[in-house]
Design a protein around this nucleic acid. Structure first.
Lengths: 210, 210
DNA sequence: CGGCGCCTTGAAGCAGATCAACTCCGGTGG
DNA sequence: CCACCGGAGTTGATCTGCTTCAAGGCGCCG
């Protein structure tokens, strides 16, 4: 982790908010942790460039990915004093950490509420996808989601097959097979295993919106 | 639906917020809908008595339950103008609907943010449960959750087996079988099929926290 | 008492997990 | 420049936990 710039605004909160209203710009390399489940949640993060995943590990090592975040997204919101997921950079990433000080909270109260509600909606959609959908349906939705993020013809998959599997609650082999099927069916084309574009959107949409 | 009392406070918002800052007390019978997916979200709801489920239906009728809500809980929060789930009373239920007027929003901004964040955390926990857990693990967690809500020795299951199945992403038969197993193993005792108490908490906790 | 939901139980089938090679590719060092 | 290595991805074979299908039990209310 590299600290680029120091506090933009400082309002001391020695007791409960050691990092008060401090804002910091940070850089991370691929797979570097940003915070870990259980850490005190001093900051809220906004992505400038790169991408981030949030993760929860179970005792026996099963991994669940909570979400992927892209430039402009806000993440790390918590109801309490501690982070409930870990987060890691998917690739070289820059972000701003906003101290959860009273001053900032008061100033940006409305923004904060909106961010929390949007994040809630996103999580609910994710939840509905995990519940009662087949592997093919999950992966079709996922490809459409990812491709909707980038305006370009080709979409880069910044995450590994294992990340996708842990996001969708599937085995890595199942992800690989479904992607292979979609390619065989002529619905998508993989330029490399981390870059694709969609050839036929409608059959994917039909699967995704069952 | 029965309207008990009329506006406690009124601040006209004719254009975008037809129900402005109006607060209404309402009653519902078992299985009565409170709002439906796609409805305009004029209100935020607080439960006084009874219980509520939120639901999303897929095109082919598959049902996903988003959550169960109990007295004191707030539900119906949305980032946009429309409800993204339906909601129904589980049993006779009383609640207060708070109009999402500018006045109320401003007054209760902080409360709103906290509610959104708590709801987010709850949804994330639910999500982590759907992703990578076996049927027995899901149902053990569920029983512990439900029993934590009531202080009493015996816990009433206000929801049907189908509701539990649709909450956990399982078939109704799987729910029934797992509950039967837990009873056979002497971990829980069902007084009737809608009322139980926990005999051995630790094996359930072991399962739930894997 | 009879009928209708809800729940339980049993048997069979299947989607996806697991296990096991094998391929592909980028990096590294001889 | 090429041989080697290691990690990521793919592919095939087998296994299994859960779903599905089917039947029967049980409680509740008219």
């Amino acid at each position: 982790m590299i600290v680029h710039a120091l506090p933009l605004a400082v309002a001391p909160q020695p007791a409960l908010r050691p990092y008060g209203d401090i804002d910091v710009r940070l850089s991370y390399g691929a797979d570097e942790p940003i915070y870990v489940e259980g850490d005190e949640a001093h900051f809220v993060y906004v992505l400038l460039s790169g991408a981030v995943r949030t993760i929860r590990h179970s005792l026996e090592g099963r991994r669940q990915i909570g979400g992927f975040y892209y430039p402009g997204d806000l993440f790390g919101l918590e109801p309490g004093a501690h982070h409930r997921f870990s987060s890691e950079a998917l690739c070289p990433t820059e972000l701003i950490a906003f101290g959860r000080g009273a001053q900032w909270s008061a100033l940006h109260q409305h923004t904060l509420t909106q961010a929390a509600l949007r994040e809630l909606a996103r999580t609910q959609d994710h939840l509905a996808m995990l519940g009662r959908r087949t592997a093919r349906e999950k992966i079709a939705s996922f490809l459409l989601d990812v491709s909707a993020r980038g305006a370009a013809e080709n979409t880069a998959l910044l995450m590994s097959r294992q990340d996708i599997a842990d996001y969708l609650g599937l085995a890595i082999e199942t992800v690989s097979r479904a992607l292979g099927q979609f390619q065989d069916e002529g619905w998508v084309a993989f330029h490399s295993c981390r870059e694709f574009h969609i050839l036929k959107r409608s059959p994917l949409q039909r699967l995704a919106s069952r």
